[in-house]
Design a protein around this nucleic acid. Structure first.
Lengths: 259, 259
DNA sequence: AAAGATATTCTCATAATATGAGAAAAAATC
DNA sequence: GATTTTTTCTCATATTATGAGAATATCTTT
């Protein structure tokens, strides 16, 4: 088995070496991080720079992701059906619940936040568009995992394990399996301090016209406001909104259709 | 001069072949568009697919840009200083003016919209984050061009020309030069149906701590509401907001500083 | 079901190009 | 002016990308 597409892979490695924690890096830093010869690293960076895939701060000489990627990212957003269709529903859910509302999709073995509307309250949960979280913890993540193939779930557990993210993170595969089954049975997911201490959330699934899960809709906030006797009301709300979005996406099951 | 980085260039070509008009493409289409052998095209697409740089619709078998790019795009947005600093000012300007407010930056030979807040009115100008427009037409574009090096402007005119985008587009280099000088003298730009018929706009420049132009701030809308006797008020507003943002970015000139 | 169209994968010999060490220049910093 | 850091350049060689075409799979239509 010979290597293939090494240069493409290197390019991708360079681009992927930028993340929330490393928003900019020097050429030297990248070269060390990927242990790639410095001269080679420069060649790649040059090319990427010319194409706008990375940019370079003239003061610090450090590189970061470029405007071409910003532009393309917006193109992805523009094309993302669920995002556009969900937008008005999310907005209304945010108003009615008064809490932060989050829309997530599966990306690799993680949940990716594709949209969020922050609660207007002073104490609230905040998450950024583009943030990613492992799929095994938190309502907005578990709701996505619950509707994946068994093979997917097995691979994920084998490949990445069930890391402890917080006090209540589920780390036992059997327990997770049970939890996911219960989510499917109920049609919604809940969490309490699984990712962040003091955070609570309720989430419901969004399906497309083929009945395939495309997204998770979540109401999240401080656990006191989510996990108290108010919870059932929030659950009803998030389920209803998710159903409407599914219906707008062409999902039929359980929808009153009038011809 | 031998070819270098052909594979990287091909990758970039593939990614760049997606735009607003071609949000998805089939492998065959891409192969024809770039005249690249089909088998080669598939190899690239495979790799890009595996890395999440493109995604593939299981129904139509067509490719589009993927979630990895979405995620990276959001990272660029998170890091973009001017965007974060300008956010509250833009919001307030939108409220006070009642019109659509746009933030643009230079990207290659184009203006790139990095943020926009739509007017709440029914008749309004709309532009999407990530949209690009040539630099020689429209207030939000000319304001950026006015503060570029002469060499940049010359290269652009030579390399790309001054295409007619609408009835009032400036297409004569000498006239453009005069217009840009007048923009610099006045400290703001105006436009009336240069890009879209019936659209008007006023724009002001935003400078960073080194005095370098980083962004253009624009109020845009139907020409009747922008280009009437109300215009001076809008100009004052947009200039004031732009100055505040510049000041927040560390720009000193012309700023009342109280120690 | 069969035929036709379309989409996708595979193989392999060869040409083409990516590679990286190290020297050296350029720029920033002390 | 000295020192550190950043950046560019060269070049011989091994490595890998290449693409035609055949084969297979998948979907569509009759």
């Amino acid at each position: 088995m010979s290597k293939s597409f090494t240069s493409l892979e290197k390019t991708i490695d360079i681009l992927c070496s930028f993340d929330m924690e490393h928003q900019d890096r020097s050429a030297y830093e990248i070269s060390k991080h990927l242990n790639m010869p410095l001269s080679t690293t420069y060649k790649y960076l040059d090319m990427l720079l010319r194409k706008g895939f990375v940019s370079k701060d003239p003061d610090t000489k450090r590189f970061s992701l470029g405007l071409t990627i910003f532009k393309m990212g917006n193109l992805v957003a523009a094309k993302m059906t669920v995002l556009n269709i969900a937008a008005p529903h999310i907005y209304s859910l945010s108003k009615r619940s008064g809490e932060t509302v989050i829309l997530t999709v599966v990306h690799g073995w993680e949940a990716l936040c594709v949209e969020e509307i922050e609660s207007p309250k002073m104490v609230k949960l905040t998450i950024k568009r583009g943030a990613t979280i492992p799929l095994h913890a938190g309502a907005s993540q578990k709701i996505l995992l619950a509707y994946q193939d068994d093979a997917f779930i097995d691979d994920m557990i084998k490949g990445r394990g069930l890391a402890v993210l917080n006090e209540n993170t589920i780390t036992d595969p059997a327990e997770l399996e049970k939890e996911l089954k219960s989510i499917r049975d109920q049609g919604y997911a809940m969490s309490d301090s699984e990712v962040d201490s003091g955070a609570g959330a309720v989430a419901a699934p969004i399906f497309d016209h083929r009945g395939k899960l495309v997204s998770g809709l979540t109401i999240a906030g401080p656990r006191d406001r989510i996990c108290d006797n108010n919870r059932q009301k929030l659950i009803d709300m998030v389920i209803e909104s998710a159903k409407r979005i599914s219906s707008d996406l062409g999902y039929m099951k359980g929808t009153m259709t009038v011809w």
